[in-house]
Amino acid sequence: MNAEAVIPSKRNRKVFIPHDQALYKDRNRIERCFNRLKHFRRFATRYDRRTIHFTGFIYLAAAMIWIA
């Protein structure tokens, strides 16, 4: 599949799979951002039908998270 390992393997694993720490750090930041955005019910359930309204709310929610 030519997939690259991003999550580090367990310490007790017999065959160690190397991973890119910088890529893992970026992935972690993106996951945390989405988890914070999911606290907004409007984002999690996607009430907005139009894409422009939904992306506008994403920008608003991200700004609110950034300030907090």
Score class of each variant (00 low, 15 high):
Arg41Val: 05
Asp48Gln: 05
Phe54His: 04
Ala44Glu: 06
Asp48Val: 04
Lys38Trp: 10
Ile67Thr: 11
Met64Ala: 11
Ala63Gln: 05
Ile67Met: 07
Arg11Pro: 07
Gly56Leu: 05
Ile67Phe: 05
Phe54Pro: 03
Glu31Ala: 10
Asp20Leu: 02
Met1His: 12
Ala3Gly: 10
Ile7Trp: 06
Leu23Phe: 01
Ala44Gly: 01
Arg42Cys: 08
Lys25Val: 01
Gly56Pro: 01
Arg42Met: 14
Asp20Pro: 03
Trp66Gly: 03
Pro8Met: 03
His19Glu: 05
Arg50Ile: 03
Thr51Arg: 09
Ala5His: 11
Arg36Thr: 06
Lys38Asp: 09
Tyr47Ser: 06
Asn35Met: 14
Glu31Gly: 11
Met1Ile: 06
Asp48Thr: 02
Ala61Phe: 07
His19Asn: 15
Asp20Asn: 13
Thr55Val: 14
Val15Leu: 09
Cys33Val: 14
Phe43Asp: 01
Ala5Val: 11
Leu60Thr: 15
Arg46Gly: 06
His53Asn: 15
Arg27Gly: 11
Phe34Leu: 15
Arg36Ala: 15
Arg29Trp: 09
Phe54Gly: 03
Met1Val: 11
Arg46Gln: 12
Thr45Glu: 14
Leu37Gln: 00
Glu31Ser: 10
Leu23Asn: 04
Arg13Lys: 08
Asp20Ser: 11
Ile65Ser: 02
Met1Ser: 14
Val6Gly: 09
Tyr24Met: 06
Arg42Tyr: 05
Asn28Trp: 13
Asp26Met: 05
Asn35Gln: 13
Ile7Glu: 12
Arg32Cys: 15
His39Met: 09
Arg11Ser: 12
Arg49Thr: 12
Trp66Asn: 14
Phe16Thr: 03
Arg13Val: 10
Ile7Phe: 09
Phe34Ala: 03
His19Ala: 07
Met1Gln: 11
Gln21Gly: 00
Arg36Gln: 15
Arg46Leu: 09
Gln21His: 02
His19Phe: 12
Lys25Leu: 01
Ser9Trp: 06
Ala44Cys: 06
Phe43Tyr: 13
Arg46Pro: 09
Arg46Cys: 08
Tyr24Gln: 04
Ala61Arg: 00
Glu31Asn: 08
Asn2Val: 14
Gln21Lys: 08
Leu37Trp: 02
Val6His: 09
Leu37Gly: 00
Leu37His: 00
Arg41Trp: 07
Ile58Gln: 00
